[in-house]
Design a protein around this nucleic acid. Structure first.
Lengths: 145, 145
DNA sequence: CTAATATCAGGACAACTGATATAT
DNA sequence: CATATATCAGTTTTCCTGATATTA
């Protein structure tokens, strides 16, 4: 019992510390022209799942629609994402990737410009990447719902 | 080559998404009386490594001394941390845990009050906790200098 | 009328940069 | 004088809450 609690609280502290450092490093390497973590996440989600409304994106990322708006608006201004009114529901605007963005992502230019991706490739072996990835599902379980 | 790049960029996006969700969930469950992730991290570090200056804590956490000040000051006001002038170097103030704080942490009350710790205990088996912990060293390697 | 979507406006927080005082 | 520590003040970023219009 006390061993388990100790393990969990140490793990919690380590997760917090790693999360904080990650956030600061991402900011450090994110110039004015780079996309924020939330924006990258949205592009990936739109690529994987197709068009979605701002509100549904907000639900998926665990944030408020107003917050997601301020994530998506710059993507529209950059011409990476485009909105079209939903013909069957006049309240909704369906957001999707522009052809330019799809091409950009498929060509891997996004990856090459991304500090974290480069960092992963340089620092971890493929085996380690897979290990980290499978452990990430555990972390996702913690933070979801 | 393209498989490796793809794996790395997907992993990067997953890390970003999990980090963002973690941050929002921590904020959501952090009431006015709770400690911030950075503050928990500082307490753990002081417990593990003993007294340290604000600047050295800032270096360890990867942030600026001015930012660390605003993390440590509330801890002082809560009576969890106390500063004493370094007798051998008049520039420095050595911060350390108060007896109250050491007792509080040893009794595990900190852990029981901590949402993330509770969540880990409820959501993951001990084996999964250990797996996540060993994978966290990989993440730490990514975000450390 | 109630519920869901979108958006405008303002606020809180945790990091940042710049500047200054003091001690080595 | 150059370097390191501490702290004051203001800024930026990214989320938040509250309020309002529109459509289902």
């Amino acid at each position: 019992m006390s061993t388990q609690a100790g393990l969990a609280s140490t793990l919690a502290a380590e997760i917090r510390a790693a999360g904080g450092k990650l956030k600061r490093r991402l900011r450090e390497h994110g110039g004015r022209n780079d996309l924020t973590p939330s924006q990258v996440s949205v592009l990936l989600r739109l690529e994987k799942d197709g068009a979605a409304t701002v509100s549904s994106l907000a639900r998926a990322e665990g944030m408020r629609p107003q917050s997601m708006s301020s994530v998506v608006t710059p993507l529209q201004e950059l011409g990476l994402v485009r909105g079209a009114p939903d013909p069957s529901d006049g309240r909704q605007t369906l957001m999707s990737l522009t052809a330019k963005c799809v091409k950009w992502m498929q060509e891997g230019r996004a990856a090459r410009q991304d500090w974290l991706t480069t960092r992963i490739s340089q620092t971890l072996t493929v085996q380690e990447q897979e290990k980290l990835r499978s452990a990430l599902t555990l972390l996702t379980r913690l933070v979801e719902d």
